[in-house]
Deep mutational scan, measured.
Amino acid sequence: MSIQHFRVALIPFFAAFCLPVFAHPETLVKVKDAEDQLGARVGYIELDLNSGKILESFRPEERFPMMSTFKVLLCGAVLSRVDAGQEQLGRRIHYSQNDLVEYSPVTEKHLTDGMTVRELCSAAITMSDNTAANLLLTTIGGPKELTAFLHNMGDHVTRLDRWEPELNEAIPNDERDTTMPAAMATTLRKLLTGELLTLASRQQLIDWMEADKVAGPLLRSALPAGWFIADKSGAGERGSRGIIAALGPDGKPSRIVVIYTTGSQATMDERNRQIAEIGASLIKHW
């Protein structure tokens, strides 16, 4: 067993022997301040990774656009098919120029040779490549099948209805392509620590998230040296922004954090800054 596999296998073990965790309302004060600064709703939840206990939450059962955070769930569904012998990570998928959609920095470079399922998941999570996500959605049967996968996990809230990039439209009061912070946090925890996926697939999923290259201005910008984070960000229309993450000190994750916002007129930089400040408060009061 590799060191990384050992780390993920012992996530519940280490967490069980940690000192009790206590909620700190100071972080919620910052979440509410972010709402004021952005002029928009902000949803927040913080779960203990081992027990699933909610440590703090704000608007945990209000719907927010998922945006690209759905790509972690998508690759979880792909990995479940791999575990069941219905898919192979090494299978190569070929596609054409007509398949390319807006923001496809990886797939646009491989029109000639195609990409493997493993490479597509890596591109979808680490670079948020939209064509990679659409190609992977095709392998599982489309958005409705991802929703069905989530329902089978016990998540009857999260739903995907459309493809990239239309799913980022974020129309107010439109339930399409949305989740709730509580539902997303619980589902992410199941994917990373539950028995739904094999140990190898859980490790692969967290490795992809740990290698995320496009979430630097968010929670990662607030992390002290030595902290662990595996995350996936999302951005959408109407001032929408979000991030889902597993993080913790001492090089291992111990909490799940989900943050979503929508309806702001603020710039992307300002949305990023507010999420980073929430992260800084979380870490300060850990």
Results as ranks from 00 to 15, higher is better:
36 D>K: 15
241 R>K: 06
161 D>W: 02
190 K>N: 14
119 E>A: 10
193 T>A: 15
65 P>T: 03
34 A>C: 10
154 G>L: 05
215 A>H: 04
260 Y>C: 04
203 Q>M: 14
280 A>C: 12
73 L>W: 03
72 V>C: 07
61 E>W: 12
283 I>D: 01
174 D>A: 05
259 I>P: 00
170 A>G: 13
190 K>Y: 12
114 G>K: 04
271 R>S: 08
3 I>D: 08
254 S>D: 13
167 L>V: 14
241 R>S: 06
206 I>H: 07
256 I>A: 05
123 A>T: 05
181 P>S: 04
218 L>Y: 02
36 D>L: 15
213 K>L: 13
15 A>V: 14
76 G>N: 01
61 E>N: 13
278 I>S: 00
205 L>T: 03
163 W>R: 10
273 R>E: 14
77 A>K: 11
152 N>G: 13
248 G>Q: 01
102 E>T: 13
81 R>A: 10
169 E>H: 11
58 F>G: 04
243 I>C: 08
87 E>A: 07
245 A>T: 05
54 I>L: 11
93 I>A: 04
187 T>L: 08
70 F>E: 02
25 P>H: 13
24 H>A: 15
275 I>E: 01
239 G>M: 02
89 L>S: 06
102 E>G: 09
58 F>V: 09
286 W>H: 04
100 L>Q: 05
195 E>W: 06
246 A>E: 06
220 R>V: 03
56 E>C: 08
101 V>S: 10
128 S>V: 00
165 P>Q: 06
272 N>T: 08
96 S>G: 13
41 R>Q: 10
28 L>G: 08
272 N>M: 03
45 I>Q: 05
6 F>D: 05
286 W>G: 02
185 A>C: 07
179 T>E: 00
96 S>W: 12
127 M>W: 13
46 E>K: 10
180 M>N: 13
177 D>A: 02
162 R>F: 03
104 S>L: 01
121 C>L: 05
241 R>G: 05
77 A>N: 13
249 P>H: 07
13 F>P: 07
278 I>Q: 00
36 D>P: 05
57 S>H: 13
48 D>G: 06
155 D>M: 01
75 C>K: 00
246 A>S: 09
196 L>A: 15
177 D>I: 01
267 T>I: 09
86 Q>T: 12
120 L>R: 00
38 L>E: 06
120 L>Y: 02
186 T>L: 15
240 S>N: 07
207 D>C: 10
197 L>S: 05
152 N>S: 15
172 P>A: 13
60 P>D: 15
195 E>S: 14
250 D>I: 10
114 G>Y: 05
46 E>F: 08
105 P>T: 06
151 H>G: 12
196 L>Y: 15
167 L>Q: 04
284 K>C: 09
198 T>V: 07
35 E>I: 03
93 I>H: 05
272 N>G: 05
263 G>P: 04
278 I>C: 04
259 I>K: 00
56 E>Q: 11
279 G>W: 03
196 L>H: 15
17 F>L: 09
8 V>M: 11
206 I>N: 08
194 G>T: 15
139 T>Y: 07
